[in-house]
Design a protein around this nucleic acid. Structure first.
Lengths: 339, 339
DNA sequence: TTGTAGGCGTTATCAT
DNA sequence: ATGATAACGCCTACAA
């Protein structure tokens, strides 16, 4: 009992031709009679025939699936990135297999394994904030499934990546702050596992150094993005004898928690202390206390680029077998909402 | 050249047993020697073997894929719903095939066709705001692929649905507003295609009627959720000779645009006019002017339930062939942020 | 306990 | 221009 799902065979039967003829007709193969072609295509249309992707896979070794793994779509950055990915994917007739790591390495591994089982043609991933081991990703690459990392990229040389230049971006941020008279600048950084955290710190220190200022490491604190740790971080900063004049948050979500706490402490946001952040998410336009300056991170663009990059990798694979790796670094753009 | 991807055959070869033996060993079939089983499982582990889901499909007629289509993940409502779906899916070993309609019926159709081609085991969908025709959804059901609608459900009797009781919810909202002394209550409603819009309107009118008040239809305006139309709607309301005392927005995103405009017009939010909304999204806690009251819509819960519902449908299908439809209506819960 | 064979839907190859 | 056949990876009834 086949539930009447139309297949090439069924069409062939009804038309008294062979399955291969139907296949050729549907694929607009040159060697097929015009009349047969039309007859087949018409019936296929009537039956609402859709080729079975699983069966096609056997012949073509292609699923037309791209796996996408992000920490959490609830972050506007990633939901925008996904739109960029999806748009580009559609243009290439790819569909998206979706999974979230919830910033947990074990879940990330589980999700990646599922994608491997589904034999995705490629994988786009933004790493969880605590991913240190990459076995799951090596395993998928060993299956000749290419991986492109975006935004949260690994500290690996041999990897395809799309990311923002956060070192230069942070330097620009520091430049702006210092030249506007702020000296005691604090940084609420993220977990050390993230390259993005290390880049921010480098930019912070280099930014100070460029102006011949020395970093006061009491002004550099950390959060794992949980509200608790973020509040602990800002609490520490505000309780310093010598309070910071400016505070840079790791991203807009950290920033929101930070200013909420600061408000409760009676701080006049962007007056008593100025606040800076990363990502420049649209939602900040509606928030109570947007950061005064923010570094654009092009979520849509990164997603689009990642997808295009993997398409390039997939094409290349058919021709040469010597692997080369792509890397795309987006320029730093500072957004100021200052008067 | 098979790129060394491990298959049952390869394992069988290396172990000098037959493919079926390997299959049985991996599936913990009872009729298999303990020693053979361990040998097979160990080698499979070493090779990091993952069964090919496409091949499994042929035998089991199951892809273990669930299609999920939403208007846009950029709305926090849908990104939360997806997390609920994904969590429940993982528990059942399903993976998510993801697509956005961007609130465009043509795109929705295209995405649904792609899912059909991939032979998803089931489809979860929240309709685009302008979907009137359901051919694409009937087509997928004809393939015995069950569909569960959530939140944005169609006006069809014979359909599986998960949704909120917005009629009662709106009545509760009206009750609260009226009993707090507000009489001239405006409603910024959504497109008529959405059942959710019609339910809101019914609740609005019934809510007034219950207090023996008559609806003034000049207070009921519409938006398609674009910023332009929303601003036009609020502009109209504010320019009425007899300005509303309370304004209900279709959802939190409409609300944000509404209060932004109202602020520019010098309105003191929730003082001069009180604002109400639907969804109660977490992000509103960080916004400049959250609604005074909001109706919870359980995004995570709806997603979870939709997934569980489709699991129930899938199980049922194997036993009886008489279709029955499930419907789950979540109770209305009003959230007040009033003192 | 293990092996053999057939089939799922499609397409490439070879034959007609 | 069309048909027959084999093959892809896995599972299972049947055979040994």
């Amino acid at each position: 009992m086949n539930k009447g799902i139309p297949t090439i065979k069924k069409i062939a039967e009804r038309l008294n031709v062979s399955a291969s003829t139907v296949s050729r007709a549907l694929n607009n193969h040159p060697r097929i009679g015009l009349q047969t072609r039309t007859r087949v295509q018409q019936l296929a249309g009537e039956l609402n025939y859709q080729p079975n992707a699983q069966a096609v896979f056997f012949k073509q070794r292609k699923t037309f699936l791209i796996g996408v793994v992000v920490p959490s779509v609830r972050e506007e950055f990633f939901s925008q990135a996904i739109s960029g990915i999806e748009m580009a994917a559609m243009q290439h007739n790819y569909t998206i297999l979706f999974g979230q790591s919830y910033d947990d390495p074990a879940t990330e591994k589980k999700v990646v394994e599922a994608m491997r089982k589904q034999r995705v043609d490629g994988l786009l991933i933004s790493l969880s904030k605590h991913t240190r081991k990459f076995d799951h990703l090596h395993a998928i690459e060993k299956m000749s499934i290419p991986v492109v990392y975006f935004d949260r990229v690994p500290p690996l040389e041999k990897a395809n990546k799309v990311f923002c230049n956060l070192h230069d971006g942070t330097m620009k941020m520091m430049h702006w702050l210092i030249s506007h008279g702020y000296r005691r600048i604090a940084l609420i950084n993220g977990p050390e596992e993230l390259a993005a955290s290390r880049e921010r710190l480098r930019g912070y220190i280099d930014g100070l150094a460029k102006k011949r200022l020395k970093a006061d490491m009491r002004l550099v604190v950390k959060t794992d993005f949980s509200k608790e740790q973020t509040i602990e971080a800002i609490r520490n900063l505000l309780s310093l004898k010598n309070r910071p004049e400016a505070i840079i948050s790791f991203n807009d979500y950290v920033h929101m928690d930070v200013v909420q706490y600061a408000r409760q402490g009676g701080i006049d946001i962007n007056k008593d202390i100025v606040f800076a952040s990363y990502a420049n998410l649209p939602i900040t336009a509606h928030t109570a206390f947007p950061p005064l300056i923010s570094l654009e991170q092009y979520p849509y663009g990164q997603g689009e680029m990642a997808m295009q990059m993997i398409m390039r990798v997939l094409e290349q694979k058919t021709t040469t077998e010597t692997k080369r790796f792509y890397s795309e670094e987006l320029p730093a753009m500072l957004i100021t909402h200052a008067g």
